[in-house]
Design a binder for these strands. Structure first.
Lengths: 175, 175
DNA sequence: GTCTATAATTTGATAGAC
DNA sequence: GTCTATCAAATTATAGAC
């Protein structure tokens, strides 16, 4: 992994734990074994780092999902796959969704970070609409909004109450 | 309003916009017309302020709701009332739920702030279980978890995409 | 690419006067 | 209750050497 990717990975952990203000160039630098001035070589400003972090997170998240139609064709329920991906992020990483946290803080984020965060949600809503349409083509817009909100909220509350079982309880009715 | 309450109100706005790290004693002091050293007279540490903020927010939130049985008796659907209270917080204050944001940041919060945040969710889940039981006494625990998650998530995503209509879309199936 | 050095600002917190 | 004065630490960022 390149230094640049190491920095982004370190930043991801921090942001997913405590939000945008929970990482500093000095901390990241120390974790990857360089000096904070060198971080500015890769990312001119903190906003640049934050924006690239959200962008890569989004791209990786969508790539891991794959196309709804392809999932369906291999006998899987796309919505189930979607739920499982959120569940894994919570249980394995033991952390919030990066863009969930950033989304909640949106009013205080630099413009370019805000834009990338918004992009995450737009792409997820599109994906969910297509996925729902494959199951039952009625009210897909509402269903997509409902599914996404429920999963983000379930992650958040699970973290808050310190109980992963809560996530399964909250999402038990998702087809 | 006392200086202490003015400080808490100013802090609430900051936290609901950008999280726990988005307020400082100096900023709060300036907003209410005193010096930062004087803020320490009311709240010895930042964690003390944060904890009292979450506690008052919770108490106020529960008081505004009232008892589910009482709502039912006056011809209202308690769940509808509950949804409306979240909706108002988003549309009128144009801000996230205080404890929603704190909950997402929980791993990086001082212990006493974390505890008060947890209390908010525990009380809300209790309230929702009672409320759901009045409508249909089956699966009330799942229903409570589902309702709370959906509302917190819908607030979060609405903020992120900058569209209040999203909230209504996501929550349209809540009875 | 990485460093040293440093600037300018902000932060939480305390001591002690009034 | 509120102030001045101050501290130690952390923050984002830049200039310039190697």
């Amino acid at each position: 992994m390149s230094k640049k990717q190491e920095l982004l990975k370190a930043a991801e952990d921090k942001v997913r734990s405590g939000g945008y203000s929970n990482f500093s160039f000095r901390e990241l630098a120390k974790e990857v074994g360089i000096k904070s001035a060198s971080v500015h070589y890769y990312f001119p400003t903190k906003a640049d780092l934050g924006a690239e972090l959200a962008r890569q997170y989004t791209d990786n998240f969508m790539n891991l999902l794959g196309a709804p139609a392809k999932l369906k064709k291999t006998g899987k329920n796309p919505i189930k796959v979607y739920v499982t991906q959120f569940r894994r992020a919570l249980l394995e990483d033991k952390k919030m969704c990066l863009c969930g946290l950033l989304g909640a803080e949106t009013d205080c984020l630099p413009e370019k970070v805000k834009d990338e965060t918004k992009r995450f949600f737009k792409l997820n809503l599109e994906w969910l609409q297509v996925a729902h349409k494959l199951n039952d083509p009625i009210d897909v817009e509402q269903k997509a909004a409902n599914t996404l909100s429920l999963l983000e909220g379930a992650m958040m509350v699970s973290k808050a109450v310190g109980d992963n079982h809560f996530f399964d309880q909250a999402t038990s009715w998702l087809e």
